[in-house]
Design a protein around this nucleic acid. Structure first.
Lengths: 76, 76
DNA sequence: AAAATATTACCGTTATAACAGCAAAATGAA
DNA sequence: TTCATTTTGCTGTTATAACGGTAATATTTT
């Protein structure tokens, strides 16, 4: 799970955003961005989804029971 | 996000587990399973990860900035 | 059908994440 | 280096998810 934090941080940097800016854009507090990037798992799924959406990152699930994979953070 | 709930429910059924059993195996309360399957987004990432792990479901992220995709709920 | 099991729903209580504010490091620019 | 910005860390307060218990439906089994 530190992986996700690094990915998010990388995307934020590339977008030229500060933690505070990303927080505001995502509708969460700055602490949440800080925590996520630090690898904290005790954040709300809600908050994470908003951040991922802001950064245009897709979230998918995959298992042997499924054929292929499925995006879970898109409309509809 | 209702999608994730359905996927989890499907996997649980296929595994022959009740909500309570899945909850116990995942170390969360029964309410959490119920909420996740109902599509509630205000659950902790922590809880969701435990459930996904129990059901052997991989969680991945993908974006244009990355090459390919990356599994985020595995060891190391 | 009835009986048993499972799911959904609601309710206090408790635990804890979210938050803003501030200060201290760290980083980067001039 | 100095100055400005950003990040990290901490600290109360507030908001709310997690939890177990219980009850009402719904589903499955016999």
């Amino acid at each position: 799970m530190k992986r996700l934090g690094k990915i998010i941080r990388g995307h934020r940097k590339k977008a030229g955003l500060t933690q505070k800016e990303l927080a505001d854009l995502s509708g969460v507090g700055k602490t949440v961005i800080f925590d996520i990037e630090k690898g904290k798992e005790t954040v709300q799924l809600n908050s994470l989804m908003n951040v991922l959406k802001t950064l245009n990152i897709k979230l998918k699930v995959e298992s042997r029971l499924m054929d292929g994979e499925e995006v879970i953070n898109e409309e509809s």
